[in-house]
Design a protein around this nucleic acid. Sequence first.
DNA 1: CAAGATTGACCCATCAATCTTC
DNA 2: GAAGATTGATGGGTCAATCTTG
Lengths: 163, 163
Amino acid sequence: MTRATRTIPAQTTRWLSADEQRHWRAFISAVELLPDRLQRDLVAEHGITMADYEILVRLSEAEGRRLRMSELAERSLSSRSRLSHQISRMEAAGLVRREDCAEDRRGQWAVMTAQGWAAIETAAPDHVESVRAHLVDQLTPAEFAALGRACAKVVDHLQSLED
Amino acid sequence: MTRATRTIPAQTTRWLSADEQRHWRAFISAVELLPDRLQRDLVAEHGITMADYEILVRLSEAEGRRLRMSELAERSLSSRSRLSHQISRMEAAGLVRREDCAEDRRGQWAVMTAQGWAAIETAAPDHVESVRAHLVDQLTPAEFAALGRACAKVVDHLQSLED
DNA sequence: CAAGATTGACCCATCAATCTTC
DNA sequence: GAAGATTGATGGGTCAATCTTG
């Protein structure tokens, strides 16, 4: 809703200026369109989703290619519930498996399988190309860096709220 | 997956540098966290979703507060199918209604109701505050502008693909 | 046959409830 | 009781199929 079309003035509201609105809408549009595009590429070429890919990346970076469910949930910015469903699907697809945790019998390990490793090894080059084609290469290095820094500040703020 | 952990060199792949990876992940994290935060605020305070809000904004900006379904789908970056489901829900909630189109009998109008107008009038100030609190106010004006311009370039690219 | 629009089936995320172990 | 983790119900998005009118 633009300021001009409001019938009741709301003096206390700091409406967005025309420029701010443009920037805000550009951001929202990018948020809507880019993940969609990358997901389509990934699913079409390799049959895995961005969510699958994200999990595999986190596991590939972990010692022994395994992480506790709660730790994996945090690192992948997922709720535990969502991760649990996600891992169930990936387990059915053979990309990961669950293992009981010896130290804490409430715990579970999510462990990357050989098939999971193969999947991300195959998908990674194409995915990176996709990210370059649709994001990095569309911007100058300075623009891309500015985008990253702005997002990092926002993310820091949002994560500080969750206490 | 980081470059260092790969076992098989893939000379043809232009992997992301450490800096590029940081920027990319910051962006992805923002994409994950910010819409979530805004949606929670909106649902908690006003019982409408970001998708509802977006539709109401587009209709509020249109002549007669009505748009053809296909036009509304384009403007809201939605598929026709998704919009159709969305409008059905909003119709059930009393926020919009459908009307037959006289000029083209295949067509349908999505029309904002008085209740829809009231809903966005009530929600808009809080939503804008939310956008400011979690995005705009977290950045300097220059940073926010840079974010907007970068996103606009990416969006232009992505929309040019859909031909 | 193409365009406008809708439908239903399936997939995924969220939320509250639950279970087990600490 | 709190923490780790899972489950099932519900709501929303996607896709292919369908219907109607141009």
